Simulated assay, not measured.
Amino acid sequence: MSKKLENALLTIWVVSLTATLGSLYFSEIRGYEPCTLCWYQRIIMYPIVLISTIAYIQKNAKIALTTAVFSCIGAATSLYHYSIQKLDFLQESSPSCGRVPCTGEYINWLGFITIPFLALTAFVIIAATSFYMLKVLKEEK
């Protein structure tokens, strides 16, 4: 496997592990109860950590399609979640998310960085890296 692919696998692993540890920090240490959409984002992110760990150990870049699919679904979920937090016209019609409203903002750094924004950033980085890996794999054939 080329160094480009190995570095890309490492990038996916580091980003997904950081996102996972960050979500656990917010819920387990800071005590922020996740809303339903946060749970969906976790359900999508956590397997990426396991998939990328095994892939990195095995030097298997063929998981790029899998991580691309997971991260695109996660990014769409995060974008929707972030939109209902920040866009007034969506807040009014947003679904009820159980005990914790999905429109709530536990953090709001610099006026725009919320937990769904952090998740969106991680998913976009993973997706971009996955598509890069697919391109490199195609070129190396």
Results as ranks from 00 to 15, higher is better:
85 Q>D: 09
96 S>T: 13
94 S>N: 03
91 Q>M: 13
70 F>H: 03
74 G>A: 07
106 Y>I: 10
85 Q>H: 05
102 C>V: 04
92 E>C: 09
98 G>H: 07
87 L>P: 11
88 D>N: 11
99 R>A: 04
82 Y>I: 03
79 L>K: 03
93 S>W: 03
100 V>K: 05
86 K>A: 15
102 C>K: 01
92 E>L: 04
76 A>G: 04
70 F>P: 02
105 E>V: 02
93 S>E: 13
69 V>K: 04
85 Q>G: 03
106 Y>Q: 13
77 T>E: 03
95 P>I: 11
87 L>C: 06
98 G>I: 13
87 L>K: 05
70 F>N: 10
74 G>L: 14
96 S>L: 11
70 F>C: 03
102 C>R: 00
73 I>H: 02
93 S>M: 14
83 S>Y: 08
100 V>P: 13
104 G>S: 10
90 L>N: 03
74 G>P: 01
95 P>S: 15
87 L>E: 11
101 P>L: 01
92 E>N: 11
108 N>R: 13
75 A>Y: 01
91 Q>G: 00
73 I>G: 04
92 E>D: 14
84 I>P: 04
71 S>C: 07
83 S>G: 08
69 V>H: 08
75 A>H: 03
102 C>A: 09
71 S>Q: 06
69 V>M: 05
85 Q>W: 01
104 G>E: 13
101 P>I: 08
73 I>E: 05
85 Q>C: 06
108 N>M: 12
80 Y>L: 10
86 K>C: 15
105 E>M: 14
95 P>W: 07
78 S>T: 01
79 L>E: 11
76 A>L: 12
107 I>R: 06
106 Y>W: 12
82 Y>Q: 07
71 S>Y: 13
95 P>H: 10
96 S>V: 14
104 G>H: 05
71 S>L: 05
96 S>D: 15
70 F>Y: 05
95 P>C: 14
75 A>G: 15
101 P>Q: 01
90 L>T: 01
79 L>S: 14
84 I>C: 00
103 T>A: 06
108 N>H: 15
100 V>G: 07
78 S>R: 02
78 S>I: 06
94 S>Y: 00
78 S>K: 05
106 Y>G: 15
108 N>G: 10
80 Y>M: 11
102 C>M: 08
104 G>N: 10
105 E>K: 12
72 C>R: 09
96 S>M: 09
85 Q>T: 04
91 Q>P: 06
101 P>H: 05
100 V>I: 15
94 S>W: 00
95 P>Q: 12
84 I>M: 09
99 R>W: 09
76 A>P: 02
77 T>D: 01
80 Y>C: 03
77 T>W: 04
84 I>L: 02
108 N>I: 07
107 I>N: 09
69 V>W: 08
83 S>K: 04
75 A>Q: 02
70 F>L: 09
86 K>N: 15
71 S>D: 10
105 E>A: 09
103 T>M: 00
91 Q>R: 08
77 T>Y: 04
105 E>L: 15
74 G>N: 03
88 D>G: 09
84 I>G: 00
76 A>K: 12
96 S>Q: 15
93 S>I: 07
100 V>D: 12
74 G>Q: 06
97 C>I: 06
107 I>P: 12
96 S>I: 11
74 G>V: 03
78 S>A: 12
96 S>W: 08
69 V>G: 10
91 Q>V: 07
79 L>N: 10
108 N>K: 02
83 S>P: 11
90 L>Y: 02
71 S>G: 00
90 L>V: 03
79 L>Y: 05
91 Q>E: 09
